[in-house]
Amino acid sequence: MTTTVTLAASMRGGTKDYGTGDAAVRALDGIDVDIAAAEFTAIMGPSGSGKSTLLHTLAGLDRLTAGDSWIGEQQISSLSEDKITQVRRDKIGFVFQAFNLIPSLSAKENITLPLDISGREVDPAWFDEIIGILGLADRLTHLPAELSGGQQQRVAVARALVARPELIFADEPSGNLDSRSGAELLGFMRRAVKEFGQTIAMVTHDPSAASYSDRVLFLADGRIVDEMREPTADRVLDRMKQMGH
């Protein structure tokens, strides 16, 4: 391990309110977060703890009410919508829980979509390597509707990886999968971090999913309440139980 940690993303004093007046809900309450580069970070917490909101605001999908956030060196909380879109396009990859793929495009076209949008060339060697690892070689011409749930999520991971983003955000990527497919997918994600130095930040409520990460952040009521390095499923489960879950 190196002594100086490069940050892929960070947030200072992040506050997010939904609604106004009496109906106002504070989802993030002055939160400070650092996502270290080349690390697999898991964000955990009970429903309503603000973990999804944290992911969305970190990724520039949603705006903070107060506070600042950065992608690498780039401060994004004050950028215009167009600029944020550009940051997402060039620096961030996404894997959502479901509906990751454009139904009218084949698997291959879905994977290269971020590059096509920004007009960049596909690196064929890199593409082949990802496809090989994810076992998608014989599925490339299929439409999403013709793929299983696990295959669809692997296509989504391939899409996130192919553009070599600085950071991949994953929102319950294995949430809709059976346990074997889920384990496979998380294994691939961990390999991407270990072998290619990819940074991944993942929201999950599943302790066994969190166990694939290097570091777990625990959220409750819009604040970070704890942190765990080198987690195992049992330790995470214990911690969650303490939080009254």
């Binding site: 919508e81 167009d82 879109t85 550009q86 997402r88 060039d90 996404f94 454009i102 139904p103 949008i117």
Partner: peptide, 16 residues
């Protein structure tokens, strides 16, 4: 709507 939301998330601008 979800398809367009996804495209927006991975970096397609509103104009595009």
């Amino acid at each position: 709507t979800r398809e367009f939301g996804l495209l927006r998330a991975i970096g397609v601008s509103g104009r595009q």
